[in-house]
Nucleic acid binder design. Sequence first.
DNA 1: CTAAAAAACGAAAACGATTAAGTTTTTTCG
DNA 2: CGAAAAAACTTAATCGTTTTCGTTTTTTAG
Lengths: 339, 339
Amino acid sequence: MVSMRDISVACGVSVATVSKALNDQNDIGKDTKIRIRQIAKEMGYFPNCSARALKTNRSFNLGVLFVDDARSGLTHDYFANVLDSFKVYVEERGYDITFINSSRVRANHMSYTEHARYRGFDGVVIACVDFHDPEVVELIQSKIPLVTIDHLFHNRVAIMSDNIKGMRDLLTHIYEKGHREIAYIHGADSAVTSQRLLSFYKTAEELGLNVPDEYILEAAYRDTDATFKCTQRLLSLDKPPTCILYPDDFSAFGGINAIHKRSLRIPEDISIAGYDGIPIGRHFEPKLTTLNQNTRHLGAYAAEKLIDLIEKPKTTLIEQIVVSGTVYEGNSVLELNNR
Amino acid sequence: MVSMRDISVACGVSVATVSKALNDQNDIGKDTKIRIRQIAKEMGYFPNCSARALKTNRSFNLGVLFVDDARSGLTHDYFANVLDSFKVYVEERGYDITFINSSRVRANHMSYTEHARYRGFDGVVIACVDFHDPEVVELIQSKIPLVTIDHLFHNRVAIMSDNIKGMRDLLTHIYEKGHREIAYIHGADSAVTSQRLLSFYKTAEELGLNVPDEYILEAAYRDTDATFKCTQRLLSLDKPPTCILYPDDFSAFGGINAIHKRSLRIPEDISIAGYDGIPIGRHFEPKLTTLNQNTRHLGAYAAEKLIDLIEKPKTTLIEQIVVSGTVYEGNSVLELNNR
DNA sequence: CTAAAAAACGAAAACGATTAAGTTTTTTCG
DNA sequence: CGAAAAAACTTAATCGTTTTCGTTTTTTAG
């Protein structure tokens, strides 16, 4: 590895001068700067990030924390999309990302916070974790610049998918298609779930919908078996709904199974809708009507905010940014003309 | 941040002694070691990885390179699963992972290799990239410990999914179910595709199958529109196949659409099979018969080999490791009794 | 032309660890 | 007991940068 020392001897100047030339400082002559840069390039010089980080306390490296309950890790569709967008954005601004974990390094355990400090991350993004985990709370309370996704903390920047508006838009869309008997199989207890559920009830009320208790069921996210059973129950009701909302697109497939098993057709006999906007939903017939969460914006905003927080901490507002999705109209919701 | 210096004054010893105590070296008294470790823990000490890396040239950080043609990034199902497994394994051994990219840092472009050196990665894993990209070739030819996934290079460790055996097993399975007219819509030209295609023909010959040319079609991976069209063509043949193989599970859904459109049933009227073993295939009826690639093993082997390469370069063989998958028997392939 | 101001460059001290080599203390044993 | 050996600890250099402050050179202006 060629170091600044090597360049300094090649140019006949001091390392200090080399450093200044390479970092584009003003305390240096114009022509020497050009000459040094030229030679540095020729010699194939690249800075040593460890040395730089050691001296400047800036790693240009961001920590990503993601541990979901199902341990699906990177294979979690929603998160993978958000992270991918986040990654693209931060790379453009010269940052790298590495995953935070709390495993053991050389025989001693590290908490998330300790790991983040050990690696010297300039900032951290947290998504989809159990926000009650004491280690997560410790991280939230640390001094590290931080952005959370889909969870709001006091004094921390949060990027939130707009579940209130999302559910309102989705339900309204279905209402406008003429549906009046709409069931909602919601996800397991969480902040996201309660927002959607609340919005569902509120919107239903505004629209003058009657929502019998038996239309509201619970199934864990991505649990097709659970939605299968719930769907069966709904279809067995004296007055079954004309449309069923699912916790997410993936679990909607459990519902599709139940519906097909009864030899019913979608959407002719019953309509369905998901939530998320995963690719398969658009590629399989009937195309699933869903609320397409804007993962690209979520990731990009998180990245932008985090870097602002790092680079201009004074002027960056601690705020909550809400990213709204859009209804994707597939053909899983029938247009009812009889009203 | 509490440093070794702080601990050394708190203990009344030199920093060298602290370093030895914390790194469990033998050149130190038993009780002082215990005392120092005790105090270090109390003071909340954690090493500074930059300083350590600077001195030791070991970062305990691994680079991950992944750029696929479709720019699907992390959202690529197969890779996400492999990476997730890789991540879990390396974290257990005290390594972190960060993504390699070739964007610009502070106005000057870095190649993959330069980036890897800049970050001081102890090793690198490459998957799913365009292996003809000059930057990738440069990285392959560098001195950095490296493992490739699903691509073989001279003098480099490769972890390969066994496409030969995979296709043989899958085809044999279908044959044993009684199918004799089997079509194969294969993926676009690539090393993986040619292996599978070769194995398909070879196995067909061994089994005494007749494979008319019109049974072999091409569709890009994950392209449901293409498989939709191919499936239509196959179904329109004078003698349509009794079973269709698809490039991958995702694209098989395009085939399902075409089949449903003709009001045919799976598997009663026509059988299908995918390749990969993605989750949705097991959660949607009919469950897709497929070749379940062992992404867990692929990731774990890649991790194990890479760390061996780093930690014991002398005794680690440069070899090709083949990981075989298993046929997942869903219910998309009908058992034919009439033979 | 000369003194002051400005610009360009260099010396050296960090940053926080590791480690070879040297020094002191303790143990061993004839 | 005392010398040699072993163990425990320290000193100081080093990794590759950045940055402060001091020094030299050049420019400006009276």
